[in-house]
Amino acid sequence: MKFAVIVFPGSNCDRDMYHAAKDALGAEAELVWYQTANLEDYDAILVPGGFSYGDYLRCGAIAATSHIVTEIKREAAKGKPVLGVCNGFQILLEAGLLPGALLRNKNLKFMCRFEDLVVENSKTMFSSAYEEKQVISLPIAHGEGNYYCDDATLKQLKANNQIVFTYANNPNGSVEDIAGIVNEEGNVLGMMPHPERAVESILGGDDGLNLFKSVLNNWREAYVTGA
């Protein structure tokens, strides 16, 4: 399996994503500059955190207009796994690949610490290596991580089982404690906590590794074992 790690001007978690996929997971991975022509040769796409374009205008707004996001949309429409973390989540929301928006944290401060999450849906291609309602610990590092959506969107997220992760102790004010959601098709995940920063015990925990294992296992099941 080959991962594309998208790099925008201002990305700063791209190397963490690369390490998680290549070294911790043992898959192929490449850093892909945002001006790259296409993503057809990759099996999954990772959109990392950071401050793309310095967060000017609005977090993720400028990056969402780039050519590479058009390519991400094209590959996502084919069913290819797309993971956006932190600023990557913001980009996916701005691009319309996921519903809702991210607001300033309720305390109006940047937060950087480990938080407990609850696995609400273990039946996605990103969460199948976890148990339903399993509590895991992942680091957060954001100032605008307060997930918001209107009542109609929230009702749809619940009806379609699109809420994958929630916070055990909602640190940022997100509606319904939401920490990560998937699209209706289940192949695009956006989340604020950083699984790529928790793939080895030396980093403070390895609960994030199962997310990447989930993607790899589902890809193998679909393309290697002849599904």
Rank of each mutant, 00 (worst) to 15 (best):
A4K: 03
Y34C: 09
A129E: 15
K106D: 15
T70M: 13
A37V: 13
I136W: 02
D43T: 09
N107S: 13
N146R: 14
A95W: 02
L216Y: 14
Q35R: 15
V69K: 00
A101L: 11
G79W: 10
V199W: 02
E131T: 11
K109G: 07
P9K: 05
G186P: 08
L46T: 02
A77N: 13
R197D: 04
G84E: 06
I62L: 07
W33V: 10
V175L: 13
V199C: 12
D55M: 10
V85L: 11
K109W: 10
A168M: 10
D41P: 02
S174C: 05
D151S: 13
F110T: 08
I91A: 02
A95V: 04
T70A: 13
T225L: 15
D150Q: 11
W219C: 03
Q90I: 06
E221Q: 14
K109V: 12
M17I: 07
L189D: 01
D206W: 05
A129N: 14
G54H: 04
A77M: 12
Y34H: 14
K106N: 15
Q35Y: 15
T70F: 13
L203Q: 15
L117S: 06
T153E: 10
V182R: 02
A63T: 10
E221D: 14
F8C: 04
T65D: 08
C59Y: 04
L108S: 11
S137F: 06
P9D: 09
Y148M: 11
L211Q: 04
S201M: 14
E30K: 10
F110Y: 10
N217H: 04
M192W: 00
Q35P: 04
K213S: 07
I68R: 01
M111E: 15
Q156P: 03
E94Q: 14
G10I: 04
M125K: 11
I72D: 00
I45R: 00
I202W: 15
C149H: 02
F89I: 04
L157D: 00
A21S: 11
Y223R: 14
A20K: 00
K80H: 05
F3D: 01
V85R: 02
V199F: 02
L92G: 00
L154R: 02
Q134H: 12
Y223M: 11
E120A: 01
I62H: 08
F165K: 00
F114Y: 14
A29W: 01
V119H: 00
K123C: 10
I62K: 04
N161K: 15
F110K: 07
N170A: 12
G84L: 03
S52E: 01
G205Y: 05
C59R: 07
M17L: 11
N217L: 09
D14L: 04
I181H: 03
V118R: 12
S127L: 03
T124K: 02
I178G: 00
